[in-house]
Write a protein that binds this DNA or RNA. Structure first.
Lengths: 254, 254
DNA sequence: ACCGTGTTGTTTTTGTTGTAACAACATTTA
DNA sequence: TAAATGTTGTTACAACAAAAACAACACGGT
């Protein structure tokens, strides 16, 4: 039984995303809590069946998470978590850059299907994903950014906006702005548009124009999982562009 | 069928270490090669059974690797690999730091079993793991480093050695040294000790002393998987220390 | 009525999880 | 010294869960 309280579960979960199995996680965590142990001790400490301990330790050896001393009986010892996890992580990051390389190539010369995809409206699901997409759009903007939204949405984009502030024109419409306004950014405060009133304040809501050709709109979830829309469709862009101008008329420069 | 040749397999492998399943990888790679596609097209492109495409796309949607357009039929589009993979990676790295935190705490106050583990000799398996361990030892050295080895072993440690060069005393014994010798490092060249002659030259071989109390010896694999030994056992340390002095007598400062 | 889409089950397969049995060895006991 | 006991390391295999592969069907549009 791990002396640790509830951490056990969440840590095991974390280790699993790093590529370990449940048993591997259990054994490693158990082994961390002593300086060394025999297979049987590990079995008692971790709750993993004794017979299963051996193959598990083999795999952990390959992964450089434990070391073995060839005495009788064999003794095992955990490598310090910092080293062990960094090793795992390096492996993963390596694969990641490789995948990025190859897939990036593949993607560059993808075949352009006729019926232009620019006319479609794409959905992005999930809060984190929406923020992530907005950030990407900001970083990849060519010459102009216009963004309007509540603070819940804007606060996670400050960093990205600041970084682009020097390079391209950035206009912001917000109910308010907390902290310093970055150099090169124009902030217009105005009465809350529709999406600010809507119930829960914590929900991200707003819209982002990039280069006058792309729009992303986050609408706040109506009970469902949060969803945002992205499009380069002309009608879609024009509609929200009008809306922007309308609101902009009300606002006051800051 | 993916238009790509043999990459397909290795990329799928890489994506799996990032937490995707086989189907998820296949679908994503297929979808990358076109600007957009319906479920049926994805099925044809990827070889994944049509019925399975839907749940797979759902999961990819959650992971922000594809977007959906709610037309009839639904259209799907891959998010650019850079963004997609970074999102995956961030998730994993987050878990990793969490695990490091919690496990680091756990490890700090592990219960010290009697029969001192310092008297044991520990085995480290695998080439990468050996290098990684050597590096860790170098970074964590308190006041002195002595290292002797062939170039195959030394060349991967240059960086680590350079970093510590200013802070602590470092002595190196090598058959030769390529490139500039870092400031603060003493290199002694000498005739190749036993392990240099042994057959294959590419194999890492050598020994590392840290603070006069810890030794790690990499012996070159005799057919088996490469193995290194680590110990703080007094007899073990003394034995190799003598050996060091012996070799050192032959060498010439450089 | 027909075709393709999207959905719902069910079977097969794979890999992990869990149990049982056993040979090799060391230690104790007679 | 030899038998008895207990532990270690291995092997085989049952149980289970998740993913993969297949089959069937309701629905909407033509």
């Amino acid at each position: 039984m791990p002396t640790s309280p509830e951490y056990a579960r969440s840590v095991a979960e974390a280790l699993k995303t790093l590529g370990l199995t449940k048993y591997e996680a259990l054994v490693y965590v158990a082994l961390l809590q002593v300086t060394k142990a025999t297979a049987t001790e590990i079995h008692e400490l971790s709750g993993v069946p004794r017979a299963s301990v051996y193959p598990v330790l083999d795999r952990l050896l390959q992964k450089n998470m434990v070391t073995v001393s060839h005495t009788t009986p064999k003794r095992f010892s955990a490598t310090p978590p910092d080293n062990a996890i960094n090793t795992l992580l390096r492996e993963i990051e390596e694969k990641a850059t490789y995948a990025k390389d190859v897939l990036g190539e593949l993607w560059k010369d993808r075949t352009c299907i006729e019926g232009g995809d620019q006319e479609l409206i794409w959905n992005i699901l999930g809060d984190a994903n929406i923020t992530s997409r907005l950030r990407d759009l900001i970083y990849q903007a060519g010459n102009e950014i216009r963004i309007m939204g509540n603070w819940a949405l804007l606060k996670d984009l400050r960093e990205a906006l600041e970084e682009r502030a020097g390079e391209i024109r950035i206009d912001v419409i917000a109910e308010h702005w907390e902290g310093a306004v970055p150099e090169g950014v124009t902030v217009t405060t105005t009465v809350p548009p529709v999406w600010h009133e809507k119930g829960k304040m914590g929900e991200r809501a707003g819209m982002l124009f990039v280069d006058g050709t792309k729009v992303m709109v986050a609408m706040g979830s109506h009970g469902e999982a949060p969803t945002a829309l992205f499009s380069e469709a002309e009608g879609f862009v024009r509609f929200f562009s009008r809306y922007w101008d309308l609101i902009h008329g009300f606002g006051e420069k800051k």
